[in-house]
Design a protein around this nucleic acid. Structure first.
Lengths: 226, 226
DNA sequence: CGGCATCCACAGTGATACTG
DNA sequence: CAGTATCACTGTGGATGCCG
């Protein structure tokens, strides 16, 4: 991208990440941490492959990503965000938060990838009993496996992949799982929308949204075991 | 801009504000609140006038800005952010914060407008004695006049324009004033860099950065009256 | 297959000139 | 003052080709 040539922090940031596709590439890398070129192509429906190659070069030159050969088991180069790249997380979170009301538009024509839900999960879901025993939750969204772990400070780690040990399993559509874990919807309602739940439903009481009171679990838990 | 057609809040946000120049236009409107077309042209060095016209149409259609005729004294149409548009402030702040380390680059070739400093002022400067008597500070940056008012909650209102009543006046270069008000630099050091200060230097103790301890005022205040 | 490079039609951009 | 018109140029998206 051409520089704006303005002595302004916002303009300087946009000089680096203001190009088309750039922030979406960062989004993918924030979700996955380690990525192959093809993973990015899959996660960015609509991007032209030459454009992805070009952007990756620019991002590497700007110090936001690294591409490294991995030890023998892995044949391909792996792309990662540098710490400087990861520092974009708050900005991406803020933009995504602003964009939430727009999600209703164009629902049917839009492409969707199950792992995209990891970003809002990280952002909204909190542990409502930080002191209690740590919990590991396995999510299954289509073919995507996601691990959710409570930390001691009330935050919740959300990463792609399957956990070795789990306290419960939720299987269903991304939107419904997000609603369930941010306590916008009861387990009964989620089940009505096709969610499968394995484990003790009480575990769900641990989770709520950072932004709403989220009392649905408690009042409707009686229906949970149906 | 072409839509990304992805069911993702970030992609949806970028569908609206991801175009070149768009976020910088929002920046200008966040700083000034009410703007004429020409004010924007002046505040966005490098933009082509047809591009600005086109972006403004898009932003109006997206519900981020309004353009209205004003009552008789004002002959021209005035552009304002809608509440939805103002909600971009946190995202712009986050991006600007990320971009700060890049400000060192290209210092001499970059265009600069004095009022741009209002955004970082709003973001970093805080009132360290929220309980104390409210303070109004007048800033003069080149030809730009800025008013700074402490609120009761420790925040500081920063707006363009000259206050009717003021407790003190600071006149100097934007960067130096920003450093002074975020307590990165003592009054003596600021004066050495050409800052003119009228009023009781003790007032400066009220101000510090949200992100650093900022103890410069206290330890060096003895030199302030030189 | 993963990771690009090349080519091309076209949409977006920037500089300037012009208009009500 | 607030744009529109024009036009050369650059960036983008899609297809396809190449190479280990």
């Amino acid at each position: 991208m051409r520089s704006y040539h303005q002595r302004c922090a916002l303009a300087k940031a946009l000089d680096v990440v203001g190009d088309r596709w750039t922030l979406l590439i960062i989004r993918e890398l924030l979700i996955r941490d380690a990525c192959r070129y093809t993973d990015l192509l899959n996660g960015l429906p609509g991007i032209a492959t030459n454009l992805l190659a070009e952007r990756l070069k620019e991002l590497e030159a700007a110090g936001l990503i690294t591409r490294e050969d991995e030890p023998p088991p892995i044949a391909t180069k792996v792309l990662r965000l540098t710490s400087r790249g990861k520092e974009l997380a708050p900005a991406i979170a803020a933009l995504g938060w602003w964009g939430r009301p727009l999600l209703a538009e164009d629902v049917d024509n839009d492409a969707f990838r199950d792992h995209w839900v990891i970003l809002p999960l990280r952002q909204y879901v909190r542990d409502r009993s930080p002191g209690a025993r740590p919990i590991t939750l396995a999510l299954r969204l289509g073919k995507e496996h996601v691990t959710l772990e409570t930390a001691s400070d009330g935050s919740v780690r959300v990463q792609p992949g399957n956990p070795t040990r789990r306290d419960a399993l939720i299987d269903g559509e991304p939107g419904t799982i997000l609603a369930l874990l941010s306590a916008k919807v009861s387990l009964a309602a989620a089940r009505a929308k096709g969610v499968r739940f394995e484990g003790d439903p009480k575990i769900l009481r641990r989770f709520g949204s950072k932004y709403t009171s989220g009392v649905v679990h408690d009042s409707e838990n009686v229906h949970g075991r149906s």
